[in-house]
Design a binder for these strands. Structure first.
Length: 951
RNA sequence: GCAGAGGUACCCGAGUGGUCAAAGGGGGCGGGCUCAAGUCCCGCUGCAGAAUGCUUCGCAGGUUCGAAUCCUGUCCUCUGCACCA
């Protein structure tokens, strides 16, 4: 038999699977479906370790589900629109289309080499017009539904990417992709009205299986806050100032109003007054700072009095109106009712400008508020209300009482405010889906007729280094067109769509990827998507952007009548990062490129330490999957990835661990040689091995069902091997038991390391592929528990004996050669049985145990009375640190004791093995009392824990 | 500042009231097989010790007969949100 040659068997089985179309899946109402999906890659060249991890998890689950009888949809595609390809094209003077396709070729090759079991017929690339055709079709659908809007508004502009960004794509005022600072720009742009789905997006979060942190992030992002809009009329004017607040319960504490300097009323209020110049100064200053900095950076709160007063609608009292630099125009109404007693910002402001501070909430019911010099921002009991009916109300009751009162006099109403904004869709770049709209001077915006779709990107565009702007703008053939309505000359829209649009529905397209007359067929989509994608695996970096857009899309498409599902993903698993050792300076808290490994910190000259950091090109701590596969084979890489950590946890790359896993693969493979060398006769360990196999199999299934892949792999790739080795060493097994073990084992090896498993299966003489097999759920035999318990008792005995032997040797002048094992005397077994019986009846040993034992017949025997008492305590009460033995018996141990297990005989049967294991010449076994009490160890002998003596 | 996830032996990592000195892996150490290398096998890896005792799961308290596990406080790490009214 030849040794383990991963490359040979991996390529062979990949070819076999492919030739037989095994992973093609079709709708089948008679089988439960399982839709397993991974976030598809942006094709930037070759596959990296993050991909390998993501897809190894997915593939093992897809294979596992097929094996357990599910109809599995497991597709793959490429998120292939986007700027990197466009930038690369500029660099080399090519076209992004060519750059993209050559990248797709290489990543596809890598995926195939890993043996991922995709239904390749469904492969798609979003930059292909057969895909973006339907982007455009859906856009027009949304347009019809009124979900699309073109409007001019402030947008986030990234200079380096030469385009606008959606709100979700700005992190800390920087572009999510290139980290360049963004600035505000006014632009006519296309928006998708995601806010119409804000409530549903938020409320449905409760019902889907997303990791808690993702839910929290989405919740924060949507940011629904309940509050009130309250109108303050301006003294001497007809107009009102409307403020938004989440704390209407503090209305009686309002001592001034603050407007954002951009607020439209400001100018009118100060115009031609003495306050005009100071206001202008503040407004100028604010206009120079971005909103982000306004919110984040300003520690110094500044304001100017606008010279006018407003009336508190509930008290009728006059409060001064200020403009303040810390109020932003884009949130709420751009105006704030200032309550310095209960808002720290207002408190600071009031102190600076000597404005009154009034406390209207008390921390404790019925008491006066504390004076602390700070604002009390928590919920409290209303006090000092100028209308006494409010005093004493708390929290939500207080808020709604105020809102009710305001609504009655029509000076305000309860409102809901969201942080979520509409989705800014248009991008001023080439490599994306053209927005299918035509601008006609006569007819305005005209949608491209459905029959004229797709609006294709021209291929005859030349990209050059240093070029800026969108080349579509100057592509005459593309731009110039005829208005579909009036037939006159018109211009095409040249903005393209945000690429997140593409990935917002690709999971639906996968259900019917070859459809050329619609985005997808409703029946197919509803079948595969019912209950959502069953397992969606990807990185946490998309927690807000992609996952929120996709959820919005699914709901909008549902309302367009395209599908019945509302939530795209039922269970989301965010795989952890792949880290690797990186030079690190503790003092400077900086990670350095691996070139500096073992060298000194360039800043502080201290020798660099090492710590683990996310694999990244800039640190140079990446590991190439290609090289690893070449060296060890795909199965080893998969095993390493899956065994290093459970999917959600971060994992550390380790060359030595990878090598160790490779050795493990060899060991597993070498077990095949046993088939030829093991005897046909039954072996003494046959029963135990079968019992252990069933036990493992059931644990493995539980782990895999719950995507605890690491635990599953530990059983399938480690425990199964060491159990087999134990059985052989311990006494041997027969061929029949071996083959049973191996067959089941092959099934368990399959999801994580499918190639070796198929080879295994073949060499076992099975004529059906594992890829085409299904397995039954694990079933335990009734006496398995006892079989396993007896053996583990023996294992404990040996471990114990080995330990004690060392100690004994130190106490002995001559080498110890003999082990005497005294098993429990009959009376201790009798007492344990009694204790077990009483325990099952909820007997109270603490209270009644003493009396019980004292009236027991054994207690009347003077010679053992002390020992009986002591043993009974140990059995039923235990020591300070451990509970009574009767409480800690495992199920198996309990069965052994109650079924009259003959311990001495069992140990005697293993005497030779014990001698060999601990390197001793002879073993005597007898029940305490039936022979010499060597070294007085009889008194330690209790059921399942015999006394051991060496001499 | 707020929110979420964490802190377990040399390292990674399981463990969520007693069967826990704490699975499994890596690394290290010892032994076996072998001419050798290892795609091999076995054992040890908190301290002391004839089976027990002691110390130990970030730190300090508390609840309990009993705490890695529950509670309170505290420190640190990571992630997200951030003067959001």
């Amino acid at each position: 038999m030849s040794g383990y040659n991963p490359e040979e068997i991996e390529l062979k089985w990949q070819q076999t699977w492919d030739e037989r179309d095994i992973f093609h899946s079709e709708v089948d109402e008679n089988r439960p479906k399982f839709y397993c999906l991974e976030m598809f890659p942006y094709p930037s060249g070759h596959m990296h370790m993050g991909h390998v991890r993501n897809y190894s998890i997915g593939d093992s689950m897809a294979r596992y589900r097929r094996l357990t009888g599910y109809n599995v949809l497991y597709p793959m595609g490429y998120d292939s629109f986007g700027m990197p390809a466009e930038n690369a094209a500029k660099k080399i003077g090519g076209h992004p289309h060519d750059v993209t396709w050559s990248n797709i070729e290489s990543i596809r090759g890598d995926l195939i080499r890993m043996g991922f079991s995709y239904d390749w017929r469904r492969e798609l690339a979003t930059s292909d017009s057969t895909y973006y055709h339907w982007n455009q079709w859906i856009f027009l659908k949304f347009y019809e539904m009124g979900l699309v809007e073109r409007r001019t508004a402030p947008t986030n502009w990234c200079d380096s990417c030469d385009t606008v960004l959606a709100n979700e794509q700005v992190k800390n005022n920087r572009c999510w992709r290139c980290n360049e600072e963004v600035r505000q720009k006014h632009f006519p742009s296309w928006w998708l009205k995601m806010t119409e789905y804000a409530d549903e997006l938020l409320d449905q979060l409760e019902h889907i299986e997303f990791p808690e942190n993702v839910k929290v992030m989405q919740k924060n992002w949507i940011g629904r806050s309940h509050g009130a809009e309250i109108n303050f009329s301006i003294v001497g004017e007809d107009s009102e100032i409307s403020v938004f607040t989440t704390r209407p319960d503090t209305i009686f504490g309002v001592t001034f109003l603050t407007l954002a300097p951009e607020h439209q009323l400001c100018e009118g209020l100060v115009n031609g007054t003495e306050f005009e110049s100071s206001f202008k100064e503040l407004a100028d200053e604010c206009s120079k700072v971005s909103e982000f900095d306004r919110i984040n950076m300003i520690r110094d709160k500044k304001g100017v009095f606008l010279g006018r007063y407003a009336l508190n609608p509930l008290t009728g009292k006059e409060v001064p109106i200020y403009a303040g630099n810390f109020v932003v125009a884009s949130y709420g109404t751009g105006a704030v009712m200032a309550v310095p007693g209960h808002d720290q910002r207002d408190h600071d402001f009031a102190k600076k400008y000597n404005l009154p501070i009034k406390q209207v909430l008390s921390e404790e019911e019925g008491k006066d508020p504390k004076v602390t010099g700070r604002a009390f921002e928590g919920l409290g009991w209303m006090i000092n209300s100028e209308k006494s009916e409010f005093d004493g109300l708390y929290g939500d009751d207080a808020k709604s009482a105020v809102i009710d009162a305001l609504e009655q006099i029509k000076m305000g109403q309860g409102t809901v405010q969201y942080r979520l904004k509409d989705w800014l869709l248009s991008r001023q770049r080439f490599w994306g889906t053209p927005i299918p709209i035509i601008h006609c001077e006569e007819c305005g915006q005209v949608p491209v007729p459905e029959n004229d779709l797709p609006v294709k990107l021209p291929l005859d565009v030349i990209f050059k280094e240093g070029q800026s702007g969108n080349p579509l703008d100057s592509h005459e053939e593309f731009v110039n067109t005829i208005c579909p309505k009036c037939g006159g000359w018109a211009r095409r829209e040249t903005d393209t769509m945000d690429t997140f649009y593409d990935s917002s529905w690709y999971f639906l397209r996968f259900t019917d990827a070859l459809n050329d007359s619609a985005p997808f067929n409703k029946l197919e989509a509803d079948y595969w998507m019912s209950g959502g994608v069953d397992l969606y695996i990807g990185g946490i970096e998309h927690a807000i952007m992609h996952l929120l857009y996709a959820r919005f899309f699914t709901k909008a498409l549902r309302d367009a009548g395209l599908n019945d599902v509302s939530e795209p993903f039922s269970r989301l698993v965010c795989q952890g990062m792949v880290n690797s050792p990186t030079p690190y300076c503790i003092d400077c808290n900086v990670e350095y490129h691996v070139d500096l490994e073992g060298k000194k910190c360039p800043v502080c000259d201290v020798i660099l330490n090492s710590r683990s950091a996310k694999m990244s090109k800039s640190l140079g701590n990446t590991v190439s999957p290609e090289i690893m596969i070449k060296k060890y084979g795909a199965d080893t890489v998969r095993l390493f990835i899956l065994f290093s950590a459970n999917p959600e946890a971060g994992m550390e790359w380790s060359d030595s661990a990878l090598e160790a896993n490779h050795r493990q693969m060899h060991q597993i493979f070498n077990c095949l040689e046993l088939i030829d060398s093991i005897s046909n006769d039954d072996g003494p360990m046959d029963n135990w091995l079968s019992a252990k196999r069933r036990f493992n199999f059931s644990k493995w299934q539980n782990a895999m069902n719950d995507v605890r892949i690491r635990e599953g792999v530990m059983i399938s790739h480690f425990d199964m091997l060491s159990d087999l080795q134990w059985a052989i060493r311990r006494g041997g097994i027969g061929r029949k038991a071996l083959l049973e073990h191996m067959k089941n084992w092959g099934e368990m090896l399959y999801p994580a390391t499918p190639h070796i498993a198929e080879e295994w299966n073949l060499r076992l003489g099975e004529d059906i592929l594992l890829a085409e097999s299904t397995i039954n759920d694990a079933v335990d035999n009734d006496d398995d528990i006892a079989t396993l318990a007896a053996e583990s008792t023996l294992r404990n005995l040996i471990d114990n004996a080995r330990n004690v032997k060392g100690l004994a040797q130190r106490h002995s002048e001559d080498p110890v050669t003999k082990l005497v094992i005294q098993t429990s005397p009959e009376w201790k077994i009798e007492l344990m049985l009694k204790a077990i019986e009483l325990h099952s009846q909820d007997f109270d040993f603490m209270r009644e145990g003493q009396a019980f034992i004292q009236s027991h017949s054994l207690f009347q025997d003077d010679s053992i009375r002390g020992e009986v008492m002591q043993y009974w305590r140990m059995l039923t009460i235990g020591s300070k640190k451990s509970r009574g033995r009767v409480f800690t018996l495992s199920e198996g141990e309990r069965i052994l004791v109650t079924s009259g297990f003959d311990e001495a005989e069992y140990i005697l049967g293993a005497a030779e093995f014990i001698s060999e294991s601990i390197d001793i010449q002879g073993v005597d076994v007898y029940a305490a009392g039936n022979g010499e009490d060597v070294a007085g160890k009889a008194r330690f002998a209790v059921p399942l824990q015999p006394g051991l003596a060496f001499h």
